[in-house]
């Protein structure tokens, strides 16, 4: 029957000749293939010294944004925790007191906000669920550690530092349109 692809090869069981049975020529062919690889461009990256370029919307470690004045955007509404399919996010809400207007944008804020980075699957649903543009994923990678406790990131690790602001314009979908 005619094959559709023309890629199939006819197999035969004929006895090999002596020259074929020595496999000398196939061995030399194989050696030439490995020799070619010796001079090929290497696929390995010398990792700590070099890193691969990341996509501008890479989904890595989270960040809790502050607004332009430095007040935290998060109002501890809990939508991110509800949206999280891996149940990685927990928080405790608190009421803003007088004199804390510089610290928190609205009357309610997250006193404790924790993400378990071992549970997190970096899907970005928290980012999508957030109505206040408070949580975003960054292109940073969660640092390795040999203790499980070190992977529960609290506010001290998540909230954006004012001297090291993180650009999120590429991640704001309503602006990109």
């Amino acid at each position: 029957m005619q094959s559709l692809t023309n890629r199939s090869k006819v197999v035969s069981n004929k006895q090999m000749s002596f020259a074929e049975r020595t496999y000398l020529i196939p061995i030399i062919k194989g050696m030439m293939i490995t020799l070619k690889h010796l001079f090929k461009k290497k696929v390995t990256l010398d990792y700590p010294k070099m890193t691969r370029p990341m996509a501008p919307v890479y989904r890595g470690k989270h960040i809790l944004k502050r607004d332009l004045n430095g007040a935290e955007n998060c109002t501890a509404c809990g939508l991110c925790a509800v949206a999280c399919p891996a149940e990685a996010i927990t928080m405790v809400a608190a009421e803003r007191k007088k004199g804390e207007e510089k610290l928190y944008k609205e009357e309610k804020y997250a006193a404790i906000y924790e993400i378990n980075m071992l549970r997190c699957i970096f899907c970005g649903l928290c980012e999508e669920a957030c109505p206040k543009e408070a949580i975003f994923l960054t292109d940073e990678i969660v640092k390795p550690s040999d203790l499980r406790e070190n992977f529960i990131y609290g506010k001290e690790l998540l909230v954006e530092k004012m001297d090291h602001r993180y650009d999120i314009t590429k991640r704001q979908k309503h602006l990109i349109k």
Binding site: H37, L38, K41, K42, V43, T44, D46
Partner: peptide
């Protein structure tokens, strides 16, 4: 090193 190079890796460096 040569094993690395043959396999498109860098080998010990």
């Amino acid at each position: 090193k040569i094993a690395g190079l043959f396999q498109d890796r860098l080998g010990p460096n």
